[in-house]
Design a protein around this nucleic acid. Structure first.
Lengths: 109, 109
DNA sequence: TTCAGCTATTCAGCGTTACTATGTACCAGT
DNA sequence: ACTGGTACATAGTAACGCTGAATAGCTGAA
């Protein structure tokens, strides 16, 4: 989707993934597929796995290994309390930014 | 405002500055001051100047040196046609992202 | 005169993030 | 045995914003 999207995803993609996990536990491959479905056509698999490692190390998610019918075992992530708190802060930051941009967008017409 | 905001600004700050310049020409110091007014309390001055150099090199803005009553001469930037086109693409990218996030935010309640 | 303070720009070095590209591994169907 | 889908991992790279400091011009107070 181009360089603009790549840069804009920085900091946002993490929030997106945590938001997904706040709905229900999920594993990397599944998240990647879902994102592609949503139109994030060229988010690399490696990106999601690296991100998941990061949020795990920061203690935002709990992990459980679950055997898969087809293929290697899945690492199923679920958002814990700390992750939930971080996600809420993410939404506050996002809202602040979105409001300012909305104003700029309206003003520029 | 914290690390979250820092990361989220990547790719977005450039759009914000171009959007400001689409309204009227401006110079670095002025833009920095305006952003602080809008609540972007800790955007570093150096960041804006570096960004302006970048967009100038990409050919999105025209520059004019204007003497200042107090202090060194100002470099006044104005958005040109190429910058305008890039800004429009920025808004499309932003809208795409904002829609997806809006859905996630609503769904997560 | 000197010094502080505001205006205004610039730059080197750093940390974080997403992408590229590749590799590993497990299983099913042919 | 081979292909293809599932599933995870990682080293190297580029881009961007921040930190911290330097430079420079002008004004007003001590």
């Amino acid at each position: 989707m181009g360089k603009q999207m790549t840069e804009m995803l920085k900091g946002v993609l993490e929030g997106i993934v945590l938001a997904i996990l706040s709905g229900r536990p999920a594993y990397g491959y599944e998240i990647t597929a879902w994102l592609r479905d949503q139109g994030f056509s060229d988010i690399a698999e490696g990106t999601i796995y690296a991100l998941l490692v990061r949020v795990e190390q920061r203690g935002f998610v709990d992990v459980e290994k679950v055997p898969s019918e087809k293929g290697p075992p899945r690492k199923v992530y679920s958002l814990n309390a700390q992750g939930q708190a971080y996600l809420e802060e993410f939404w506050r930051t996002w809202s602040f930014l979105a409001e300012r941009l909305e104003q700029l967008h309206e003003g520029g017409k």
